[in-house]
């Protein structure tokens, strides 16, 4: 039983150092803008500024992401409030070594609250986020470490089995 995340400082530091998407994201934006054929100039312009203004910030408590030149967006969220982490990638993104990390909180929308784009080290970031989510560490799940509690749980499981036997017999 080896627990991996005794938060390795070196690995965390490399995550904290991320502030900008990888240039491959720009390549990806060019490709998907080309796919919109007639709308290419407009879509390309939007994506160009999106790429150049995109900033990430990972710190001890949470993560923030911002982009936009005319309409500016910034989203800040706490690691502990993350509900689930999705990793998505289409074929073009995989060819470029990219994936999107969709981070969901418990807000009312089904779309992701933050989508981290253009990260080559998406798996490391996913593991980093995961290690800081609620319930990822053993902090509040001590049942395993306590042999007495384990024995008591086994007793209740046995009792439950007895009860089910009785109920079964009562039905026949």
């Amino acid at each position: 039983m080896v627990l991996q995340f005794s938060s390795m400082p070196a690995a965390d530091d490399s995550i904290f150092a991320i502030t900008r998407p990888h240039p491959n994201l720009m390549t990806y934006y060019v490709i998907i803008s080309l796919a919109t054929l007639p709308a290419f100039p407009i879509v390309m312009l939007v994506n160009y500024f999106r790429y150049h203004t995109m900033r990430f910030r990972f710190d001890q408590e949470g993560i923030s992401m911002s982009w936009g030149i005319l309409f500016r967006h910034q989203t800040v969220l706490n690691y502990a409030r993350i509900q689930d982490v999705h990793l998505r990638s289409n074929l073009i993104e995989r060819w470029l070594g990219l994936a999107r990390i969709d981070i969901q909180t418990a807000s009312g929308s089904s779309s992701a609250e933050v989508t981290l784009e253009g990260l080559l080290q998406f798996e490391a970031v996913r593991d980093f986020l995961y290690s800081r989510m609620r319930g990822a560490t053993r902090k509040h799940e001590t049942a395993h470490a306590d042999p007495l509690a384990d024995t008591l749980r086994e007793i209740s499981a046995e009792l439950k089995a007895i009860r089910q036997n009785i109920e079964e017999r009562g039905r026949v």
Partner: peptide, 28 residues
């Protein structure tokens, strides 16, 4: 809130589960 601490020791909550199960057994 993230990981707020439950003061009940795990053995006590497990014992409560046993109690609960025993009651159900008696009812059955």
């Amino acid at each position: 809130d993230p990981d707020h601490h439950d003061d009940t020791p795990p053995s006590l909550s497990a014992a409560q589960e046993v109690l609960q199960e025993t009651r159900l057994l008696r009812a059955a």
